[in-house]
Each structure stands twice: as structure tokens, then as C-alpha cells.
Write a protein that binds this DNA or RNA. Structure first.
Length: 573
DNA sequence: GCCGTTTTCGGCCCGACTGTTTTCAGTCG
């Protein structure tokens, strides 16, 4: 049982308990536990082996026992009993927009509906609208909701969500009634995958803004349309929510709708401790009822006696304690990046020449790059043999000379770590290269021991400087490999091997939680775009967002250093 | 079911929107 499977089990239990009518707080306990497990930066099996399950937030004695049962037996007696009582297929019914636990139970009790198909059938026959509290509109909405389920994916990559959100936002910012606006929600916090998109704008005249919003060209369906909040579903799938806030109250609203939920809960607690309540509209004095309005987020945190907390770390993962001690991390910024150490050219599976990639990188303000085409065993990507690699080196040196002293082009490789654990180039080839990235591309389904051993072989090779996209995940669908990250971190720290945060939004690998742990363990990081095209250099912003979520500071990221310092590190590691 | 500088019991966020009701329940975020 891995982290996700256990989290999913608890999530399902929460749904079933809620349909059953269990008190909401017990339901929430299972949901909060599921969230905590899903975001764990370690294999829960390792945590269990260390006897530290109850150290996980929102896991107490009861849930720790249930986790133990799942890990040791692969089953959970409590879940089986619950599933015998409430059909598990009702969980799918809950996913329909407009159907919550009460209605799901009503349909089940009164019509015997236990599956999505049965619900669709009943709605099509007009049976739902005969029930009390239901009507034609509700029934139509449920039919539309079932249809939209087939269009929607659960979560989408931030690389899809961000451009879509910015497209909406930029349209709204053109309206004369809009004073300012932000992408909010998990997108603003740079979560790796996104559910719904949240937009916030400041204005005293919401009606024309809402009108423009629900008529945007990407709107498939309007889900809700009020004076302060509207929701739509896009053709692309994701739902977009827009809130319009009076400018003088914009700060509290932006904090509120940026989240995370846990961060906001803590803020409200802190407000209560000084005699205030906090919601999206204002602080209110508990005794006098007097409101304190905040136009900016800085003002919100200032009322609580805190410095501004960057959105990316608002997860209640220690940022509030750090803020109270005036000890927030000095998060890396886009402007800190001086280089890109991982990119491909027409020599393997890239689309542009070495020269073109160099020109594009220089135009973006970088001061050096490393050309890292694939190695021979990755035939599908036209990987380089040792002979072609050396040929390429001559070309790299030539371009480097042509680019002038202010911009350097170094020669490297993204070498495959083969399925049998050997490396794709011998040491005598590797030693001729300026930088060596080693990555796993094949046999990603190997078991934990096997794949971990492969990674360790690479980390221990003195010529390997960086491990590329270590965990091999592809968002939002492909799970990471079974790699034992505790072992990888230990070896990387011992051999002074850097780990990559691959900025491609489909990868974001290491993710924020692992990047944070790597930094804590003193491991150097790099943030690379893995560009196959000059346009891909833009993707660096996703890598920066991920690093910031992981509390990463510029000093620990090799490609924030200037070329001399970087080469020094490579030479002396 | 979790949690604790209101500590081992009693809280646990709450407002906007919709549809069905005629003052509110359910859903959602």
C-alpha cells in the first residue's frame, strides 16, 4: 500500500460516512488525514517502520491503527464493514455537480440508486423530480453534471491551468471597472496539479464584469452567476470561479481565496487570540463589532503581527511559526536564475540547433547553458553514441567561442541509467564532459530495490553531477517510480550529487515536498527546463514556483551561481 | 476522529448561490 492508496481509502471512508449521516467532524477527520497522507514527503511504509505514524498531522491513535492494518494486511476491516452497509459506488454519484451526501442518500433510500448509470437513467425518466425538495431544474442540472463528468479530468497539470487562468484574468483586466486582479487558489500557491481555477478582481461595479466573464469564449456552461461570485465550466474541462471584491476589502479576500484552507484556519485562530474574527470580508472586533478593512495582503498579515507570507508556502507547514519568529525563508526568485543546465537539440530529440538554443537562452537573460542531449540507449530520442557525443563537443566549443565571453555554452549529457543499473557511457567518456546528468527513462516499473539500486549506482559515480527528474512522475497521471527517496537522499548527500527540480509542468520532479527535504539535508538542487524548444525556457517559472513551495533558497540552487562558481563546484565536488 | 498557551472535553469556518420552498436545506469552496 502506497501513500496514495491509503489516502484514497480514507477519502472513500469519509464519503461513505458522510452519506451515512455521520457527524461532519468525524468525516472531516478522515478527509484531513487523507490530505496529510497525500502530501507526505516520505513513504508512509517507512514512517510506519520507524513507528512515527502519529507524528503525521491529523493522524491520532485510531487512524494510526487503521494505517497499520492497511500496511500489514492490505485490507481494513472497518472499511469492509462500512462498504457492506453503504454501496461504495455511491462515491461516484457524489462526484456529480449538485449532488452531495444528502441527495445521494435520498436517491439511494427512495429509488434504490447506487450507481452513476442508475442515476442517469432515473433522471432521464423524470423520476428524480418527483422526490421532495427536487424539481425539474435540479434534475436537469444532474443530467448536465453527469455529462460533464465525462469531459472532466480530476486534476489538471498546472501547465494547462495557468495559461487558461491568465487568459481569463487578462481579459478581465482590460475592463474599465476592474482595478486589479489575481489568480488565486492552489494555482497561485503553485500546486503541481489543479482542480478548479480561482480568479479574484477588485471593483465596485461587479455586474458588467460578471457579464463579461460568463460570456468568455472558453465558457461551455454557466454553473452559477451572482453579484459577487460566478462559476463556469470551460470547454477545456476545468471549472473557473470568479469573485469580485470591493477594493478596500481586497486584501482579506485574496488571502482567503488563495488558501490553503489549513493556513486560513490558523490565521483565523490567531485573529481570535487577539479578539478579532477574520473572514474574506474583514477583521471584526468580537466586542465592538467594528470592522478593520484590508486592501492588501500585507495589511492582513500586519494586523496579526506577521510579515508578509508568500503564497507558495501558505500550507500550514511551519510558515506561520517561521513568520512569528521573523524567520521566513528567503525564497528563490525567477531573477536569481542565471543558467539552464538541461536541454536538448537536433542532435537528439530537440527541435533546434545548439546555436539557436544558445541565442534564445542569451536573449532570455541567462549567462550560461549546458547542452545535454540523450545518450545512445535511448534510441527513440536519437540518443548519442560516444562518437557522436565527441563530435557534438567540437560543435559546442565552437558555438561557445562564437557567443562571446558574456555567455558560456558548456557540454554535457543527459545519460540514461540503463535497466540493469549500468550507465550508458563509460567513465573515460564522461570525464571529457563539463556536466553529467543521469536520468532514468526506461524500466520505470521495476520494484523498489531494483530501481533504487540503479539510482544509487549513478549517484555514486564520481562523474555524475546531477540526477535528472529523479522520481519519474508524469502529471497528472503517471505515478512516480518506486524509488526509495530516503536512500537517494542519503547517497546524494554523501557523494555531493545535485538533484534536479525539472521545471516542465508535466514533471515538477522533484516536487516541492521532496525539494524541501533535500535542501534540509544539505543537498544541492538545480532547476532546469529540460527544453526541447526555445519556447520551453519559459517553463522555468513552474520550476521556480515548485522550488518556492519547497522553501528553497537561491544559495542552494547551483544554476543561480555564476559560471565560475558553478564550474568550481563541479570540479571540486 | 483530531487536538491542546481556552489541554483530556468540547470544539471543529462559514458565506454565496441555487432551487425549492415561502423561510430554508443542500451544495460548494
Amino acid at each position: 500500500m502506497n501513500n496514495r492508496q491509503i489516502a484514497d481509502t480514507f477519502e472513500t471512508i469519509a464519503d461513505l460516512l458522510q452519506i451515512k449521516g455521520e457527524i461532519i467532524h468525524r468525516v472531516m477527520a478522515y478527509r484531513n488525514a487523507a490530505d496529510a497522507i497525500r502530501e507526505l514527503p516520505r513513504d508512509i511504509n517507512a514512517i510506519y517502520a520507524d513507528g512515527q505514524l502519529q507524528q503525521i498531522p491529523n493522524i491520532g491513535a485510531t487512524l494510526a491503527e487503521k494505517i497499520e492494518e492497511l500496511i500489514t494486511t492490505g485490507e481494513l476491516e472497518f472499511f469492509n464493514r462500512l462498504a457492506a452497509e453503504v454501496p461504495v459506488t455511491l462515491v461516484d454519484v457524489l462526484k456529480v455537480e449538485g449532488v452531495g451526501p444528502k441527495k445521494a442518500k435520498k436517491f439511494w433510500d427512495e429509488l434504490g440508486i447506487t450507481t452513476l448509470e442508475q442515476l442517469q437513467e432515473a433522471a432521464a425518466k423524470g423520476e428524480l423530480q418527483k422526490l421532495s425538495g427536487m424539481g425539474k431544474k435540479s434534475e436537469d442540472r444532474i443530467l448536465a453534471g453527469i455529462e460533464s463528468l465525462s469531459r472532466r479530468t480530476d486534476r489538471i497539470s498546472i501547465g494547462i491551468a495557468m495559461p487558461l487562468a491568465l487568459d481569463f484574468l487578462n481579459e478581465l483586466l482590460k475592463l474599465p471597472q476592474v482595478k486589479k486582479g489575481h489568480v488565486a487558489g492552489s494555482l497561485r500557491r503553485f500546486r503541481e496539479t489543479i482542480g478548479d481555477l480561482d480568479l479574484l478582481v477588485a471593483s465596485d461595479d461587479p455586474d458588467p464584469i460578471m457579464e463579461a466573464f460568463i460570456h468568455h469564449q472558453s465558457v461551455e456552461r454557466v454553473l452559477g452567476h451572482g453579484p459577487s461570485k460566478s462559476s463556469i465550466e470551460t470547454f477545456q474541462g476545468p471549472q473557473v470561479d470568479l469573485k469580485v471584491i470591493p477594493p478596500e476589502r481586497y486584501g482579506t479576500a485574496l488571502v482567503y481565496f488563495t488558501g490553503s484552507k489549513q493556513h486560513n484556519v490558523r490565521l483565523r485562530e490567531m485573529a481570535q487570540n487577539i479578539g478579532l474574527t477574520l473572514n474574506e470580508h474583514a477583521f471584526t472586533n468580537l466586542e465592538t463589532g467594528e470592522e478593520t478593512l484590508c486592501a492588501t495582503e500585507e495589511e492582513v498579515y500586519a494586523v496579526l503581527g506577521l510579515p508578509y507570507i508568500p503564497p507558495e508556502i501558505r500550507e500550514d507547514r511551519g510558515e506561520l511559526e517561521a513568520a512569528q519568529q521573523n524567520n521566513l525563508p528567503d525564497l528563490i526568485q525567477l531573477s536569481d536564475i542565471k543558467a539552464d543546465l538541461h536541454m536538448h537539440t537536433t542532435w537528439s530529440d530537440g527541435s533546434f540547433s545548439i546555436r539557436e538554443m544558445a541565442e534564445a537562452a542569451k536573449a532570455r537573460g541567462l549567462s550560461y547553458i549546458v547542452i545535454t542531449d540523450h545518450s545512445q540507449s535511448l534510441g527513440i530520442a536519437n540518443g548519442l553514441t560516444p562518437e557522436r557525443l565527441l563530435e557534438q563537443q567540437a560543435e559546442v566549443r565552437k558555438v561557445d567561442a562564437e557567443m562571446g565571453p558574456d555567455f558560456r555554452v558548456f557540454h554535457g549529457t543527459e545519460m540514461d541509467i540503463r535497466a540493469d543499473g549500468t550507465l550508458d557511457f563509460p567513465d573515460e567518456v564522461l570525464e571529457k564532459l563539463d556536466v553529467v546528468i543521469a536520468s532514468i527513462h526506461v524500466a520505470q516499473k521495476q520494484d523498489k530495490d531494483q530501481i533504487t539500486q540503479r539510482a544509487l549506482n549513478a549517484i555514486r559515480n564520481p562523474h555524475v553531477d546531477i540526477i535528472g527528474h529523479p522520481r519519474g512522475q508524469l502529471l497528472p497521471d503517471r505515478e512516480p517510480t518506486q524509488l526509495d527517496m530516503d536512500a537517494v537522499f542519503e547517497a546524494a548527500a554523501e557523494h555531493n550529487t545535485a538533484l534536479e527540480i525539472n521545471a516542465n509542468p508535466r514533471r515538477l520532479d522533484l516536487d516541492a515536498a521532496y525539494a524541501r527535504r533535500a535542501q534540509e539535508l544539505g543537498i544541492k538542487l538545480v532547476i532546469n527546463t529540460d527544453a526541447h524548444h526555445p519556447e520551453n525556457f519559459e517553463l522555468i517559472s513552474y520550476g521556480i514556483g515548485t522550488a518556492r513551495r519547497g522553501w528553497v533558497e537561491a544559495q542552494n540552487v547551483l544554476n543561480t551561481w555564476d559560471a565560475d562558481q558553478f564550474l568550481d563546484w563541479i570540479a571540486n565536488r
